[in-house]
């Protein structure tokens, strides 16, 4: 049976997806990125191959570590893979917001998952997952919970610092002044959202808005983005896997 594999080696996590010829996900796997990426990838792919013993599954790699995947036939950038993945996951064209650990991107997706336009926030970490991760750690709250806490808060403090590192010191002083954790977290989310909205405004925007990347699991991000843009946001079932899923589809398309 025809199968294809996509592997997305991101700055925070490694994602693997295997699909069948109908683009249905047969296998998925996520684990944290380790410092020795090459060895880690080899091991992960070895396990997948073990599972699909005897089958020759073509691989396409993507993500920051895409060139370290020796088993891959080819590597493609995250932009191309995310566009492809979201188009087939949601079956629509539109504008995809992908908030990853190391950067965030806004991609305008055309028919068949082709890229019409894109922009990236890759100079400053304040528009990335790392921004939230850092501050959650500073407050000693699991990162999965910060969205809920932020949404529960009525009050919102403005975080004026636009840099992750300096925002951390700002948070420390806000805490010292007795500000509620919830209102600080809401302010932090607002900071990130404002940056994303700026990026949406700088591309050839086409509705609907779609969301992917690990940060999409944070409910506050989705709700606040909807509030800021006035558009409802479509979410795929596995937002974190969209890059790997797209890579798998490209691999499938190129092998048929």
């Amino acid at each position: 049976m025809v199968k294809a594999m996509g592997i997305d080696v991101g700055s925070t996590t490694v994602k693997v997806v295997v699909i069948d010829k109908n683009k249905k996900i047969l296998f998925k796997h996520i684990e944290n990125t380790k410092p020795r990426i090459k060895e880690q990838v080899k091991e992960v792919i070895g396990k997948v191959k073990e599972r699909f013993k005897g089958e020759d599954i073509p691989i396409i790699s993507t993500g920051y570590g895409r060139k370290l995947v020796e088993e891959a036939k080819k590597s493609m950038t995250e932009i191309t893979c995310h566009a492809k993945g979201i188009y087939y996951a949601l079956n629509t064209t539109g504008t995809l917001i992908d908030i990853g650990g190391q950067d965030s991107k806004v991609i305008v997706v055309e028919k068949y998952g082709r890229v019409l336009d894109f922009t990236m926030n890759d100079k400053c970490s304040a528009g990335t997952g790392r921004f939230l991760e850092n501050t959650a750690a500073r407050m000693d709250i699991p990162v999965e919970k910060i969205g809920e806490i932020a949404l529960k808060s009525e009050k919102e403090v403005k975080i004026s610092s636009t840099c992750t590192v300096f925002a951390e010191s700002e948070i420390i002083s806000l805490l010292a002044y007795g500000e509620e954790i919830g209102s600080i977290l809401k302010g932090l989310h607002r900071g990130l959202i404002t940056r994303i909205v700026g990026m949406i405004n700088s591309v050839a925007f086409t509705p609907p808005l779609m969301l992917s990347g690990g940060v999409a699991k944070n409910r506050a991000i989705k709700e606040m983005l909807e509030e800021e843009t006035g558009y409802s946001i479509k979410m795929p079932e596995h937002p974190q896997l969209i890059g790997a899923y797209g890579a798998a589809i490209i691999s499938l398309e190129q092998n048929i």
């Binding site: 950038t77 995250e78 894109f118 990236m120 890759d122």
Partner: peptide
């Protein structure tokens, strides 16, 4: 920024 520029250029070429 070497890596960031490489990704942008490569994405544009793929586009």
């Amino acid at each position: 920024s070497e890596e960031q520029i490489a990704i942008r250029i490569e994405s544009f070429f793929e586009m």
